[in-house]
Design a protein around this nucleic acid. Structure first.
Lengths: 189, 189
DNA sequence: ACCTGAACACCGTTCAAGT
DNA sequence: ACCTGAACACCGTTCAAGT
């Protein structure tokens, strides 16, 4: 069996979704592909690069076009909601993307999009940078928590699965209000 | 050499600070103590429990009493700044504490204190919970980033070490403003 | 109460060699 | 271009046995 980079990434996403990030090892992935672990190093310099590619593919699969007539805060909300949905679509998606971003290896689109939306809304470059990072930290933290609990619930411990998207919206609105207060154009949530 | 639980935790903090979280293994810690790795399982059920105890000790060392006449938002700010300082005092402190909190194994004080401050400020229980979590997510995310960059700078790559506490304050103010707008008592930053 | 020694089932990564 | 096979230097955890 001879694979290409993209085949390896696709299979890695399958392993991630079925067994979780903790079981996504080079040896496991090699085994799943019927190949020696060392063969993966022909496609990726190391495990971190592989994870970066997996995170990028996960986000690409969750990408959705945004209308171009949105107010800046509506656009920020849309970026965050799309990011959340993309990560929730695969097991441990939030932890994976957050890790890759923290290591500075990939998944840069969400940050760039948020920064651009804030600049368009009238933020100066410093506020746009601080704001975009604060938004990302919130989204990664919240969705990681959500996913941990969804996982625990699916094991069977807890039965009710409320999927509290409203908690997500409320926390997001807190940050958006703070940004709105500094950008002139006011907004209700 | 015969150790007690607290000796092991103290030595683990030394290893963390000198070599980083990635090198804080049960085998490494055992070696540092002159003891077999299996001996550590007399003191802790597993590595996660050890890490929880280390995180709690790290926070205890950074604890500072707060004046009792603070406004709710000043108290929130003080909790967050104290938490930040405690984590920055040891290598990979933010990553460690964030991990322990995410796993639900310890380091519950910051959350409890934040929730109490928000309740005292007039938040209903739901907003206090969502707000406290949003604040924690922001602090963990921001300080982890900070510490990663401080680490990279200390390796020598970057020379200037600005220690941008002002970025931290600005991001924190964004969330605080959103909370203030929902709690009646308004606040400037 | 605290520790040893050996074992089990794993990791990421490198590298010469094969096709 | 893509893979094998073997090796190196590690992991967390268990468990019978020692003092």
């Amino acid at each position: 069996m001879r694979y290409r980079r993209t085949d390896v990434v696709a299979r890695a996403i399958d392993v991630l979704d079925q067994y979780g990030l903790g079981d996504l090892s080079m040896r496991r992935l090699g085994g799943e592909l019927g190949v020696q672990p060392s063969a993966l190093y022909h496609h990726f310099a190391n495990k971190q690069s592989l994870l970066a590619a997996v995170a990028d593919e996960l986000l690409a699969r969750g990408a959705r076009p945004r209308p171009d007539d949105l107010a800046w805060d509506e656009e920020v909300r849309a970026i965050c909601v799309t990011l959340r949905d993309a990560m929730l679509a695969y097991r441990d998606g939030a932890e994976l993307v957050a890790t890759v971003v923290a290591l500075g290896l990939g998944a840069r689109r969400p940050y760039d999009d948020l920064e651009a939306a804030l600049l368009r809304g009238g933020a100066d470059p410093h506020l746009a940078s601080v704001g975009a990072r604060a938004l990302l930290h919130y989204v990664f933290g919240h969705v990681s928590d959500e996913q941990t609990q969804l996982q625990a619930a699916s094991i069977g411990a807890i039965d009710d699965d409320p999927r509290p998207g409203s908690d997500f919206d409320l926390g997001l609105a807190l940050v958006l209000d703070g940004l709105g207060a500094r950008l002139g154009s006011s907004r209700r949530s």
